[in-house]
């Protein structure tokens, strides 16, 4: 035989007393420890579930009654709106601050760095209070020439409603965090990409929007998803401004009927449900921005199309 050197006969007795046939198999696995741990955990889960169901003070009928109530649902819609608008403001402010920090002008870059320091350093709860009490500092907000004539002015309490105060507080704080995320994304894109686009005669804006940002997205999207989920929950702080979002709606109800725990549970269930949906959405967005990278096992419409085209024309592997 030609290949005895590489493939010894399994049945041939080898001098070292090892059973070659036995070595071909896979080792026996012991699962005893796994089963025991699983049993302990399952028992603990059973105990907690039992208490959740049997403890009358959870008042599950009250929970589900309020969970589907119009008042909480209206509050939820306000929470969603607040989350969306605050995130939108945060992303726009974040991109602007990130670009400003990367600008060659030191005054612009320094100012942006200062604003990030300020809006990130003061707790968002305190910032919300400041915006809520803005009328105490600037009773009237005017448009006009600085130190010159003013065209019109508005009462600050009319312009900065609790809703506006919430958007400003949440949006600017978010902008500071987003600017760091966007900046990290922009810096992650290889310099060669900008150079290649520049050499092709592309203008600055086109290089940013067509070449750099789409690649930065891969870095920017996952933490932005986290920020959105975090924002959804941070909006509950707005209850301090007496803006009836989800938590404050629940508080208004339980301050009247004293069903505190059931209402907090009902609100929590909504928070959990929306967070779960957002997490799912993040998965799909990440997959979209990952195109062009090689990730085995995942395929998008575009990569499938590319693969199909390639396999049609690629030479078939020659079988010996």
């Amino acid at each position: 035989m030609a290949n005895t050197a590489t493939e010894p006969d399994a049945k041939a007795p080898a001098g070292d007393g090892l059973d070659r046939q036995l070595l071909q198999g896979r080792p026996h696995q012991r699962h005893g420890g796994l089963w025991l741990t699983a049993a302990i955990v399952l028992f603990a889960i059973f105990l907690i579930s039992y208490s959740l169901i049997t403890n009358p003070r959870f008042e599950w009928n009250v929970v589900f009654g309020w969970f589907t109530s119009e008042r909480l649902f209206t509050g939820l819609l306000r929470t969603l709106g607040l989350t969306a608008i605050s995130m939108a403001v945060g992303i726009v402010v974040g991109v602007l601050l990130a670009l400003a920090r990367l600008a060659p002008n030191a005054v612009v870059a320094g100012t942006a760095a200062f604003l990030v320091w300020l809006f990130r350093g003061v707790p968002v709860f305190v910032q919300l209070l400041f915006w809520g009490f803005i009328a105490a500092i600037y009773p009237r907000i005017a448009v006009g020439v600085p130190f010159g004539p003013e065209f019109f002015s508005v009462d600050a309490n009319v312009l900065i409603t609790p809703f506006m105060a919430a958007i400003l507080g949440l949006g600017l704080n978010e902008g500071a965090y987003m600017s760091e995320i966007v900046r990290a994304g922009l810096l992650s894109v290889n310099r060669g990409q900008t150079e290649a686009a520049t050499a092709l005669g592309m203008r600055r804006f086109a290089i940013l929007s067509r070449v750099v940002l789409p690649q930065a997205m891969k870095i920017i999207i996952p933490p932005t998803g986290n920020q959105t989920i975090s924002m959804l929950k941070t909006t509950s702080l707005v209850s301090v401004l007496a803006f009836p979002e989800l938590l404050y709606s629940a508080q208004l109800v339980y301050s009247a009927n004293f069903k505190t725990i059931p209402l907090l549970i009902a609100a929590s269930m909504w928070y959990l449900l929306v967070t779960s949906i957002l997490s799912l959405g993040q998965y799909f967005i990440e997959r979209h921005f990952n195109r062009g990278g090689i990730t085995p096992g995942r395929s998008t419409r575009r990569t499938r199309k590319a693969k199909a085209e390639n396999s049609r024309t690629a030479p078939q592997e020659v079988q010996p």
Binding site: Q193, E195, A196, R203
Partner: peptide, 25 residues
């Protein structure tokens, strides 16, 4: 910048590290 870009339109460049845009076909 626009004037510089205009001049670059007529000059092709090929880099050591290719620098293709990875997110585009």
């Amino acid at each position: 910048n626009a004037e510089a870009a205009k001049m670059r339109e007529n000059i092709g460049m090929v880099f050591q590290s290719f620098n293709l845009f990875p997110h585009m076909t």
